[in-house]
């Protein structure tokens, strides 16, 4: 059973995309969802709040998704944070780069609600192992 009280941080510079992800997460039963428009903003929120999951875009101003991921993995407080990348970046070497940086899963835009659910389940399943 997933923990529906888990607090999510949805990071994307496009509000439409944040809204879509937020809506899907709500449909999946999660209630606590916050938003950030770039990596800098996201990192500040992660440091100040008790978050359990990050859903993040790659291409953003100030600090992009990959930079945020690396920063999280290098932060002793945050290093185990589940991190799902949802991005239009579909180049093979970029996916590999994200995997090496420690991403928990990777979704290529455009995506469906079912795929997001599937990937979340997969992440939780892997975390339990």
């Amino acid at each position: 059973m997933p923990d529906y009280k888990m607090k999510f941080l949805v990071v994307d510079d496009f509000s439409t995309m944040r809204r879509i992800v937020k809506n899907i997460l709500k449909q999946l039963g999660y209630e606590e969802i916050e938003e950030a428009e770039d990596g800098v903003n996201a990192y500040a929120k992660l440091k100040s709040g008790r978050f359990g999951f990050v859903v993040c875009d790659w291409n953003m101003p100030n600090m992009d998704g990959l930079q945020l991921l690396k920063k999280i993995r290098n932060d002793p407080e945050l290093k185990d944070m589940p991190f799902l990348m949802i991005t239009a970046e579909a180049e093979k070497h970029k996916v590999v780069e994200a995997i090496k940086a420690g991403v928990n899963n990777y979704i290529v835009k455009p995506f469906t609600a079912e795929l997001l659910k599937e990937k979340m389940d997969k992440i939780f399943e892997n975390l339990r192992k």
């Binding site: 579909a90 180049e91 093979k92 070497h93 290529v108 795929l115």
Partner: peptide, 11 residues
């Protein structure tokens, strides 16, 4: 200069 593009199943 872009690299090889892959789909979700490729990912």
């Amino acid at each position: 200069t872009e690299g090889e593009l892959i789909s979700q199943s490729g990912v």
